[in-house]
Design a protein around this nucleic acid. Structure first.
Length: 327
DNA sequence: ATTCAGGTGCGAG
DNA sequence: CTCGCACCTGAA
């Protein structure tokens, strides 16, 4: 329910005279965890609050129990978009209850509960994850910010929105380079030109089943298995997607490879498994909830410091100091 | 100064 | 099809 309440105003000058609305987010929904766990870029989170440019406005969110206060969005359409984006209607309690049956997630989810898989804009999500390849988060956000500043349309208050495919297609290679895209610049440019000239309709992957949608994205320059799965999951809502990045790869190898069940053995007969193998394992094991499983594993793996960098000359056999309860 | 960071595209075996 | 390697670039 979107309940606009123009009577409530903050004294803060920056947000004064802005409308305030409330979104209902049933437990265990966790706003900040959802926005800061790495599936979306650019959200500034602090405490129970998060802020970012959304729909051309500076939007501020704050969660209090099962309510999310929205400041900065004035119209219903934008609020509905935000509501959809945040996936506040995903049945998280049910999803987590199901995943809790897994012997590994049983110990992971208590630490990561409340994450929802977002429904981002496909174009922005696609470009963001192309840029994420072999890159680090601060620099990814730096690049995205520069792209918006330089090529984005001007929204309210002079804020820059994420640039359209047309705008990026028209950008010179040199101008793109100035946004510190590095060697990814040609990829972004090529994809922008393709989308801008109608060579790829970004609605299509959303209408196609997972495998077919995946093939469409893999055909794009700069889009490999991992990036394709990220976009399928974070923008198109394809729950079967299980993006395998270095963190998830490590987590799965460590937490499931040592397992004893026949199903796991079938997939894990070696030491280091290929990303494809891990993906297939996850899809069979978690089905439509693979994406949720991935995000919990990813967040959990990243939340704790890498285990002792006991990097000795002979590639120290990684002793896994896992706690007894995780068996 | 060296190394690392949320992969991808390529050539080779 | 799997494997190994180079790769823009800012920050530690």
């Amino acid at each position: 329910m979107v309940a606009a309440d123009p009577r409530r105003r903050r004294s803060d000058a920056a947000v004064a005279a802005r409308s305030v609305a409330v979104l209902r987010a049933p437990a265990p929904y966790d706003l900040v965890r959802t926005l800061s766990c790495g599936q979306a870029f650019g959200w500034q989170c602090e405490g129970m609050s998060a802020a970012r440019v959304f729909a051309g406005r500076r939007v501020s969110l704050r969660q209090c129990g099962e309510e999310i206060t929205v400041a900065g969005l004035d119209d219903e359409v934008a609020l509905l978009r935000l509501r959809h984006y945040l996936s506040v209607d995903d049945p998280l309690a049910e999803i987590e209850a199901t995943l809790l049956k897994d012997r590994v997630l049983r110990t992971v989810i208590p630490e990561t509960s409340g994450i929802a898989i977002l429904r981002q804009d496909p174009w922005e999500c696609l470009v963001s994850f192309i840029i994420s390849a072999f890159n680090n988060i601060p620099k990814i956000e730096l690049t995205l910010g520069k792209l918006a500043d330089r090529f984005g349309e001007t929204g309210q208050d002079g804020l820059r929105m994420f640039p359209t495919a047309e705008a990026l297609a028209a950008a010179s290679p040199r101008a793109l380079r100035a946004c510190v895209l590095g060697y990814r610049a040609p990829y972004v440019r090529a994809v922008a030109r393709l989308v801008a000239r109608g060579g790829l309709d970004l609605n299509e992957p959303g209408l196609a089943p997972y495998d077919e949608a995946r093939r469409m994205l893999l055909a794009l320059p700069g889009v490999g298995e991992k990036v394709a799965d990220c976009v399928l999951l974070f923008a198109y809502g394809k729950g079967e997607a299980f993006p395998v990045d270095v963190w998830v790869k490590r987590a799965v190898e460590r937490r499931y490879f040592d397992g004893r069940t026949a199903v796991e053995r079938r997939y894990f007969d070696g030491r280091t498994q290929s990303e494809r193998r891990i993906r297939e394992f996850a899809r069979e094991r978690f089905g439509r909830l693979a994406g949720y499983a991935q995000q919990h594993l990813f967040t959990y793996a990243r939340s704790r410091p890498r285990r002792s960098s006991g990097v000795t000359a002979a590639g120290a056999r990684q002793r896994t100091p896992r706690s007894p309860r995780s068996r």
